[in-house]
Design a protein around this nucleic acid. Structure first.
Lengths: 206, 206
DNA sequence: CTACCTTGTGACCGCCAAGTCATTTTATAG
DNA sequence: CTATAAAATGACTTGGCGGTCACAAGGTAG
């Protein structure tokens, strides 16, 4: 929801602002993110910022949207036909895609990280809580699907399990980023495998 | 590390300040926590606050310390002899004690939650990062112990597994608090059981 | 009653934040 | 070249923050 003036900007200038915004919001939660720093790093005047965006939240929503769009591109085609897949294979693919996204776009991933943490807080939730709710909802749906398919037990607590899978996925993407730097990438992906194995034996049909 | 003037305060007044501080720090991360709000809610003058504490960080460290002390009281005697216990039994007890702590002291738990999230950020880590490091270290130790005892496979990545167990424990205590309100307490504790079962099959010796 | 010391106080300082706006600069069109 | 519209600017307003300090109030001892 930036204004037209923003989209009309020359590519280079627009990207510089975008980059500065990523820098800021990936290193600070919303409330602590500073428009002053963004404009300084983007090399534009404070007033210009408000020609492009209604306010700080406006820019933030825009970024969240971009993240969302980008993240979706990481879902493989097979994932879009969840009916044909075994629950655990599907889950593994989802987690792996999240990890890959975080690896390729560490800044975007960090913004997502802060986003989820800001979620509980404040009045400002509108956008965020919605996105979070959607995320949990998706896991709930694939759990239901898994039950119908007979992949997993039917006596599990749906809400709690969905919440758990959601947290686990985010933990993988956000918290295990540190291990990418240390060249333990393969092990992180192995972790996903191990995790799926665990889940299988834990809530899989015996 | 509050000043003597704080400890000399009448019980009632001291507790009112303590309560106001808990309120503030359980609802805001450190940077966003406001001394102004604390003094207003505690019914004391701004200047008085600085008679009791050197600065905001001083109060915060004090709270962290209190949390730490309180949390330790939740560890059962058996847990203090980890050598005699099976790794998974030990882990279950640790998680369960953390959950019980969070249930009995939701405000303290929330402060801990914010603490861990603040950890990555800023210069201010000194105290926090130390506590976090200690936590991970403990899991690493019990993992090593578990390997020696033959409870778990020896080919796991120690650092990553320790990190994972740490995150999982915190996730249980902090994120699943919401399910306590909805009367799903038993299910949360069942979740711990299930989780342990999962881990057992996942990294347990076959 | 006085002198002294501890504790309590809130106006005040400097800083940084988000957002505004009168003015200037630049681009466009006739 | 001129007139008009669009975009860029940074000084400014308002407000909250952490922290200070000169002073007032209260307690205690001689």
């Amino acid at each position: 929801m930036p204004k037209d003036t923003f989209y009309n900007l020359a590519e280079e200038k627009r990207m510089k602002i975008y980059g500065a915004a990523l820098d800021e919001f990936s290193n600070h939660p919303f409330k602590q993110a500073s428009v002053n720093r963004i404009v300084k790093n983007a090399g534009i005047a404070k007033g210009s910022f408000y020609q492009y965006f209604k306010d700080k939240k406006d820019l933030y929503k825009y970024l969240i949207d971009e993240i969302y769009k980008k993240k979706i591109t990481y879902l493989t085609p097979t994932m879009k036909n969840p009916f044909d897949m075994n629950f655990f294979d599907l889950l593994r693919d989802i987690y792996a895609s999240g990890l890959k996204f975080a690896k390729d776009n560490p800044q975007l991933a960090k913004i997502g990280y802060h986003m989820l943490r800001d979620s509980g807080q404040e009045v400002f939730n509108e956008v965020i809580d919605e996105k979070k709710g959607e995320g949990i909802q998706i896991y709930k749906q694939i759990l239901e699907l898994g039950i119908k398919r007979g992949d997993i037990r039917s006596d599990i607590n749906l809400d709690m399990s969905a919440y758990f899978l959601f947290q686990l996925g985010n933990s993988l993407s956000n918290d295990f980023i540190e291990f990418f730097d240390t060249g333990e990438e393969k092990q992180v992906f192995n972790l996903v495998e191990g995790m799926i194995e665990m889940l299988k034996s834990g809530i899989g049909k015996k």
